[in-house]
Design a protein around this nucleic acid. Structure first.
Lengths: 187, 187
DNA sequence: GGGAAAATTTTACAAATGATAAAAAATGAA
DNA sequence: TTCATTTTTTATCATTTGTAAAATTTTCCC
């Protein structure tokens, strides 16, 4: 996915403003299994996914819990680092060999102060991430794991193929055994 | 809570910009049991809570599910109305006689276009709501209902006193009977 | 392709939670 | 205060989900 498209998906920027962001971007590649960033560090960058798939998870005493998947066009971000300059909750693991556009957060903050278009892009970006997060919260509160599994298959059929079921079970908030039971049921 | 304080909590605005928002604000009062707004309508306003307490819920076939409580200093907003001009998920019920500061969303959108400080206030506002929503999602995914009940008592001891337990049980994602069991346990 | 390791499913049993009904307690209006 | 209504708790039983371990399937290196 082109960086142009990704930026425009959020909010249509005037070319000049868009160029300010694009000229600062680095492209970086990571291999399957590598860790993009870690929960115990303040992350100084945002990554847009050009190609590939990642998961966000936190470690617990015995295992780890996946709470987000990102793929082409999605933004990988430690919200707590971005918003409050604090350590985040999440480790990000790269699940396939992947390609990213890397943007420096402090540079972005500087642009927010001096360009109203980019400030509004930043506003729209946060608003859209907010809607997505709210959707996930609502889905989690109102739907059973079975429904959410079906929802996932409908909205992200490729996810099931690209990600191992243990991660998906944890994302759905159930054990892998339960997910197997759900999958075994007719229709 | 003063409107000044509420606005500053988000992001410190220059006085002139702050005045632009404040001069547009209406104060409105609602009585216990009244509905502030409804899920099947596009909401044109944002409300800051001066005094009182409200809950957001959605109706299901047999009962309704509470998924948010707001009190003094919190913002009552239909995110989908605000961000995308769509109908929201939520009905908002006023749980105590309450006082609100009402702001018109379209006026706010106009200010975002013409004042970079207010655009950045809007950005910060969305970012902070995002962090709060993410926190709720994480708490819901990682903690048991019992833990989340304890967390609620710690962080919002007055909520337990001001809100009936049926709503709290639904907020925690369990039945009222289960909540009673949790409360009955020693320690 | 063969074999080891990892992932997934299946089974049996245990623990947690839900549904329902009814009793007890709290609240509110006359 | 009293009585009716609402809210909360308790008890019983059914269902769901988890744990642990084994069986099966898939993946991936050599």
């Amino acid at each position: 996915m082109k960086i142009d498209e990704i930026l425009d998906k959020v909010y249509k920027l005037p070319d000049q403003a868009k160029q300010k962001i694009i000229e600062s971007i680095d492209e970086v590649n990571y291999k399957k299994g590598e860790i993009l960033f870690q929960a115990d560090k303040i992350v100084q960058e945002i990554y847009f996914i050009k190609k590939g798939i990642v998961r966000a998870y936190t470690k617990t005493s015995d295992n780890d819990i996946t709470f987000w998947f990102g793929k082409e066009g999605d933004t990988v971000i430690s919200m707590r680092s971005y918003v409050a300059n604090n350590k985040g909750y999440e480790d990000i693991e790269v699940l396939e060999d992947s390609e990213f556009y890397k943007v420096d957060i402090s540079y972005l903050r500087k642009l927010f102060k001096e360009d109203i278009h980019i400030a509004n892009w930043g506003r729209k970006f946060a608003e859209q991430e907010l809607i997505k997060t709210e959707k996930r919260l609502i889905s989690r509160q109102f739907r059973t794991a079975k429904d959410r599994y079906k929802e996932l298959i409908e909205n992200n059929p490729d996810l099931i193929r690209r990600v191992q079921l243990g991660h998906i079970a944890s994302y759905l908030g159930i054990t892998q055994v339960s997910l197997s039971r759900i999958r075994a049921e007719k229709n």
